[in-house]
């Protein structure tokens, strides 16, 4: 009788252990699911677009015939947008982070600004598009030019940069600034010469992540009315432009009319992903190379 009970107990444990290992593999497969989709997506895009990429495609102008189409205009547009987004987000973002971390008193006002920033981060990007359309394109009468698009995208990614800059500033150990104050330096001198240099690698990493979000963003640009027509290359902040994501968008929705457009979209996606990949590599490089451990 006793033996039987022991056997029964043993069986139960076996079953429970088996259940555990079965679920373990289910959990593992779930984790793989996302990665498999990622792999399928990338392989699919590569197969579809790779053969369409050549030097003419990259430096060429837009054309209605698929064979002659090039995306230089979109690449230049994306670069011009970066010219606006980088300084605007860095100045406003780092300034805000310094203010919140080092100047403002911990209290009501600061918590209002911080709540506000976290809520802004949750606003759908298309709503920023309407803000940009109303304020920059119509009210400031800029039209759908590089500056309007760049400012809209800059506002969109600002919360990302502020939060990462705040974390970077917080990570600078207190004894560095204590030492600086001890030498008689003023607050701003300490910030400029001690705290900012120590925090700059992490800030740059955050800035690059924010930038790569900005250049992959499509929805606000569609609202601004960014065209994909045969427009001249943008040469300044006040020129109309098109950007890589917009190009992908128009070619994708037109692929039901001209099948080759889908391949052009895939080729443009490859270019966009390469740019994003390079940007992120730079971010990782900076993080590994310059980040001090205190």
């Amino acid at each position: 009788m006793e033996k039987l009970e022991a056997l029964h107990l043993n069986n139960k444990i076996d079953a429970r252990v088996r259940k555990n290992s079965i679920w373990k593999s289910i959990f593992f497969l779930s984790t793989l699911f996302g990665l498999v989709v990622l792999a399928v997506l990338i392989i699919r895009v590569l197969f579809q677009g790779m053969s369409w990429i050549d030097i003419d495609f990259i430096v060429g102008r837009l054309s209605t015939t698929a064979e002659n189409a090039g995306i230089m205009g979109a690449i230049l547009g994306t670069l011009w947008v970066m010219v606006v987004v980088i300084p605007v987000t860095l100045i406003i973002g780092v300034g805000t982070a310094i203010f919140l971390e080092l100047y403002s008193k911990k209290g009501r006002f600061q918590s209002i600004i911080e709540t506000n920033i976290s809520n802004l981060a949750g606003v759908p990007s298309i709503v920023y598009g309407l803000l940009g359309l109303t304020v920059f394109v119509r009210l400031a009468d800029l039209g759908n030019v590089v500056l309007a698009g760049g400012l809209t995208l800059a506002l969109l990614v600002l919360p990302i940069l502020i939060v990462s800059a705040q974390e970077a500033l917080r990570a600078v150990p207190g004894h560095l600034s204590e030492a600086s104050y001890g030498m008689g330096a003023t607050k701003w001198q300490t910030i400029r010469r001690i705290i900012l240099p120590a925090a700059i690698p992490s800030i740059l990493t955050g800035a690059i992540l924010a930038l790569s979000r900005a250049i992959g963003e499509t929805a606000p640009l569609t609202v601004l009315g960014i065209p994909a027509l045969l427009i001249p290359f943008p040469e300044g902040l006040f020129d109309t432009f098109t950007a890589l994501p917009m190009q992908i968008y128009y070619w994708t929705i037109d692929s039901s009319l001209v099948a080759e457009y889908a391949n052009l979209a895939a080729a443009t996606i490859i270019i966009l992903l390469i740019i994003l990949f390079l940007l992120n590599s730079v971010a990782i490089f900076i993080r590994n190379k310059y980040q001090h451990r205190y």
Partner: peptide, 20 residues
């Protein structure tokens, strides 16, 4: 690797949904 999935622009997902 999962973070890469989060970094893919949504337009690329749109293309993927529509054509694949």
């Amino acid at each position: 690797l999962l973070e890469i999935l989060a970094g893919i622009p949504t337009i690329v997902y749109g293309f993927f949904a529509f054509t694949f």
